[in-house]
């Protein structure tokens, strides 16, 4: 995990930051997600391609907490993001090597670290569900439901 790099799973995923909240939309599953706080910090790292070490460094630069705990929470969070197919292993490395790839302006005072959480919404999934398999005619086009 330590040396494994991850990237955001585009183009399946689109994301946007709006007032410190990151909204993520998954075109494959019809789910959408929200990240704030430490979760948003992790995501900003991933937007530049990042390893677990990069992410821990970025979190330590902004939040006060025990490095081992932060690392454990970040690893669990990465696992969750990967399970949801929001991130995938990256074959390409960050533009700059190792932790210097992720440059996030450090706040003046460190905030208390809270484990990152992923808010998941599934209420729009029905918009993406494929219709039941239709019969097709000899030209291959769907036959109307009767």
């Amino acid at each position: 995990m330590t040396s494994k790099f991850f990237r955001i799973n585009t183009p399946q995923i689109v994301h946007h930051t709006i007032e410190q909240e990151i909204i993520i939309i998954d075109f494959e599953t019809g789910s959408y997600f929200s990240l704030t706080g430490t979760g948003a910090t992790v995501w900003e790292c991933l937007a530049q391609v990042a390893s677990l070490d990069d992410i821990v460094d970025a979190l330590m630069a902004q939040y006060a907490g025990d490095r081992a705990e932060i690392r454990r929470d970040a690893e669990q969070f990465l696992n969750e993001l990967e399970r949801e197919a929001l991130i995938v292993p990256s074959a390409t490395l960050p533009v700059k090597p190792s932790s210097s790839a992720v440059t996030i302006a450090a706040p003046k005072a460190l905030l208390s670290f809270q484990p990152p959480t992923l808010a998941k919404y599934t209420d729009m999934q029905d918009l993406l569900l494929l219709d039941p398999i239709h019969g097709v005619d000899e030209q291959g086009w769907p036959v109307a439901k009767t």
Partner: peptide
């Protein structure tokens, strides 16, 4: 607004 517009 976004998911309901983009998914359709």
């Amino acid at each position: 607004l976004a998911p309901s517009s983009l998914f359709q």
